[in-house]
Simulated assay, not measured.
Amino acid sequence: MHGEGTVAGEVAVFGCEDGALVYDGEFTKLEAPGEFGRTGNVFTTETSRIAFGDHRSDPDAEGSLLSAVTLIDTATKTLEVVPLPEGVQYTFRDLARGPADEAVLLGTDGAVHVMDEDSGELIASHPVIDAWEGPAEWQDPHPAIKVHDGIAYVTEPAADAVHALDLTTGEVIASAELDATPNEIAVVAG
């Protein structure tokens, strides 16, 4: 299973094709608007009641770019779909959480966008890589983001590179060229 996470208070959240499922001792189904509203990936922290997820409203758009995100409030048991600013899209590899529970998104405009986890309001945008287009197939290399200790690690397959962005300052603090094209990324604490 993928698309699950645990928020503050050990409340479990599961993404579904038509919303999300919350478990806090009993199951609650949160419906997405429309006939189809898939949340396939959720990003959680142990200190926040909010789960941050992707949102796909077209059942036939497997692997395509997405233009809205889902905020699942486990305390109020609500699901909100938040549209992104015009020109900003992403894929399932482009969501993360920041050090203060912010919702973090790597957009096709090449910027890392930081959103307030409660409102979905855009707090900051930090340019990191060149603008990019979505992959033809979801498995094809395309930019991805992972956050660890306040640093966002961003892959740039078109340049065979990876970049480190300090989310506090918005500054790219390191970049490295790779001997291969990055496809997915994981951060391992040492």
Rank of each mutant, 00 (worst) to 15 (best):
D58T: 02
D140V: 10
H55P: 02
G19D: 07
P135M: 07
S67P: 11
V7L: 04
D166Q: 01
G87P: 03
V11L: 03
W132M: 06
E46Q: 11
V154S: 07
T78P: 02
T70G: 10
T74E: 04
L167M: 04
A159N: 07
W138H: 07
V82K: 11
G120M: 09
A100F: 05
R97N: 13
E62Q: 11
H126I: 00
K77N: 10
V114K: 01
I173N: 03
H2K: 07
V13K: 04
G40I: 00
P33G: 02
H163W: 09
L84T: 09
A124M: 08
E26D: 08
I123Q: 08
D149Q: 12
D94T: 11
F36H: 15
V128H: 00
V7G: 09
T45G: 07
F14P: 03
A164W: 12
A32K: 00
I72D: 00
T74V: 13
V104E: 07
D116L: 09
T108R: 08
D58M: 05
I72L: 07
G120C: 07
V154H: 08
F27D: 08
N41A: 12
T108E: 01
E102H: 08
E4F: 14
R56N: 14
L65E: 12
G34P: 00
M115E: 02
I145H: 06
H113V: 01
T181G: 02
L106V: 01
A161G: 12
V22A: 12
I50F: 02
I50H: 01
E80C: 13
H142E: 09
E117N: 11
G63R: 07
N41S: 13
G63Q: 05
P141M: 04
G190M: 11
R49P: 06
V81C: 08
P127D: 05
V88Q: 05
E86R: 15
D60N: 14
P157F: 04
C16A: 15
K29F: 13
T6Y: 02
R97K: 15
L71F: 10
A174I: 13
S125Y: 06
R97Q: 10
I123M: 13
P83T: 04
A51Y: 06
V82D: 00
A136W: 09
P141Q: 08
P182N: 15
A176P: 00
